[in-house]
């Protein structure tokens, strides 16, 4: 399973590598990094598939976000915990095994606890396995850092992911259905923008969000900033 050819170099322009502990990093920084500065979706452009697929309502976004958070934290803690015993050759294989296990658990639990939401998320719960955020954090951070820091980092990234999903979900549900968490906002004669809950609406909303983020960063920097090139592909290059 280990693939030797595509080793470290690809990491440089992938997900930002956690800083080697030259100076002590405040726990707050570990936690908050993922929320905004290195937001997995808006900045690192990871985990696009669920961000687009399940955010047609706030409820779905929350469920997906929580499931991912669970898998992320669980996997990262475990990966960090066993990092000393796992030989390099089977590192990725064990990561995948761990993630798949957590996802299976999350999938079954969700189906038992909230069948309606499980049904509307459909295949996208098992697809958390291939969510690049999880592998990226496990590989880039958890496999090198202590359990505590990994947990904080995973929590931060998970929250960042949830926040983005929530943002998408809110925009799409309000425009697309005129409701928020199923409650009607504008009265019965509101004309829903059906497109927002359809696939094109997902692409367009996230595209527009990234556009705003790009515009905002450009304005803040006061000059051209490096384009946020997709980081997902190079990162997963390390995986197999």
């Amino acid at each position: 399973m280990t693939h030797g050819a595509v080793e470290p170099a690809s990491m440089t322009h992938g997900a930002p590598v956690a800083p080697r502990a030259r100076r002590p990093v405040a726990p707050r920084e570990d936690l908050l990094r993922g929320v905004w500065k290195e937001n997995p979706v808006l900045v690192q452009v990871l985990g696009m598939c669920p961000t687009l697929a399940v955010t047609n309502s706030v409820a779905n976004s929350i469920a997906m976000g929580l499931a991912t958070l669970f898998v992320l934290v669980g996997s990262c803690v475990l990966v960090s915990g066993i990092r000393r015993w796992v030989p390099d050759q089977v590192r990725i294989a064990t990561f995948v095994l761990i993630i798949a296990t957590f996802v299976t658990v999350a999938d079954m639990t969700l189906e038992a606890v909230a069948p309606a939401i499980h049904k509307s998320l459909g295949a996208f719960v098992p697809l958390i396995v291939v969510n690049c955020i999880i592998l990226a954090r496990a590989e880039a951070f958890a496999s090198r850092q202590s359990v505590g820091r990994s947990a904080l980092d995973a929590l931060g990234m998970g929250f960042g992911f949830i926040l983005t999903l929530l943002l998408m979900g809110t925009i799409r549900e309000i425009l697309g259905s005129g409701t928020l968490l199923g409650r009607s906002l504008f009265g019965p004669s509101y004309e829903p923008w059906v497109i927002m809950v359809l696939p094109p609406g997902g692409f367009l909303t996230l595209g527009a969000l990234l556009l705003v983020v790009g515009w905002w960063r450009q304005r803040k920097a006061g000059r051209a900033v490096p384009v946020n090139e997709p980081a997902c592909a190079p990162t997963v290059g390390k995986v197999a």
Binding site: E191, V194, I195, M196, L198, G201
Partner: peptide, 10 residues
């Protein structure tokens, strides 16, 4: 196409 997808009935 956007309008068609957004307001199919209208």
């Amino acid at each position: 196409a956007f309008l068609q997808a957004a307001f199919p009935v209208a």
